[in-house]
Design a binder for these strands. Structure first.
Lengths: 198, 198
DNA sequence: TGTACATCAGTGAACGCGCGTTCACTGATGTAC
DNA sequence: TGTACATCAGTGAACGCGCGTTCACTGATGTAC
């Protein structure tokens, strides 16, 4: 029963999308009710017709950001496979790409917000934990079979840490060196399985 | 010419120490002028006799937090060596300890604040970059010689990412599993050099 | 098809609150003679 | 050693501002007949 969305649902969606971008770009505290509404082309007064509180929006935006990012990764993996790369190589090259370094607003929310998660209220923290779990699952599924238990945890930690350190260092030579070192290591270490046809 | 600190210098020091703890516990936005002064046993009015702005305090607190954490790590490494462990093992076991998981306020500021660094003002960002560089150096010096270029970057990324993901998951079984997986991997992979006397 | 009315989505002013910052003042410490 | 004064560190009230939240209202959309 896939009905066409009502006007209100469309607006709700637009607000969440806006917040999902701003959230990754400016952090949890950067999501202000009035600002998000303005960016979505609305006035702030209507906000509470859509969300019971600011935190509810943040939790929803986090979920949206995670879905965005997961789909983006999946597409990159599919594109890589089509070119003959392994799923794991495609994952690593996409996650640790210079594009992801430069554009947190369309990237992984775990990397963009990691250190702030433990300080959030319960609803937001739970939404964030679901995103962490989803990222771990995505990494697990990109790894070839036959990797020891805990490999997804290792790879995920390294990817998230690498991106954060590179972003902290800045979009310059030291940041890019940090990314490249981790990219190279992960591929040498874990790209065990060749794609079909090799 | 090591003079005894004046009364004002002592107070300044106490404020910075307080802020260095609160900063790691509650993040950049958690450092409020009035709150920090109150915790240091003062009223907020006197703040600007010590610092030109809130940001100046944050930058100084970040530096202090980094020094705190570096000294703590060095002591742990020395203690580990005394018990016959390699420097690298001591580093990893200390950085990825359950204590560090539970107590961000006395731990590494890069792990506690990583994702927020790119969004800070220039002075704070520069102080943070110095802390990242210092952490990379500490890891480098704990690694045995003969590791390929970029190994410190790899190890640092993994440790920072592991701690953040573990903290996001919470101080429970899943958080501890995350830590343990990375601890084990790092030791198996990089503990090449045995301490003197073996 | 056209009119009357109810419902709905969004507006904009207002609120209370906490924040960073400023400043006139006070009480304690230190110095000059 | 004791007194008079200058300097210093810290106090507490006040400011302007931005934030999350509330609410009476408006104009558009949809429904009944």
């Amino acid at each position: 029963m896939e009905t066409t969305p009502t006007r209100k649902q469309q607006t709700h969606d637009r607000i969440v999308d806006t917040a999902a971008r701003v959230l990754r770009e400016t952090g949890f505290q950067g999501v202000g009710v009035a600002d998000i509404m303005k960016r979505a082309g609305l006035t702030h007064g209507g906000f509470y017709a859509h969300f019971p509180s600011r935190d509810a929006l943040v939790a929803e935006a986090l979920e949206r950001a995670g879905e965005d990012s997961r789909l983006r990764l999946e597409r990159a993996i599919a594109a890589g496979e089509a070119k003959g790369a392994s799923r794991f190589r495609a994952l690593v090259e996409s996650y640790l790409s210079e594009r992801h370094l430069k554009c947190p607003e369309s990237g992984c929310p775990v990397a963009a917000l990691g250190s702030e998660i433990p300080r959030q209220g319960e609803a937001v923290r739970e939404a964030a934990q679901a995103r962490v779990a989803s990222l771990l699952t995505a990494v697990e599924s990109a790894l070839g079979s036959g990797q020891p238990v805990g490999t997804a945890a290792v790879v995920t930690a390294q990817m998230v840490g690498a991106l954060q350190i590179a972003r902290a260092l800045g979009d310059n030579a030291s940041g890019r060196r940090q990314l490249a070192a981790c990219r190279q290591f992960l591929l040498e270490q874990f790209e065990s399985e060749r794609p079909a046809g090799r």
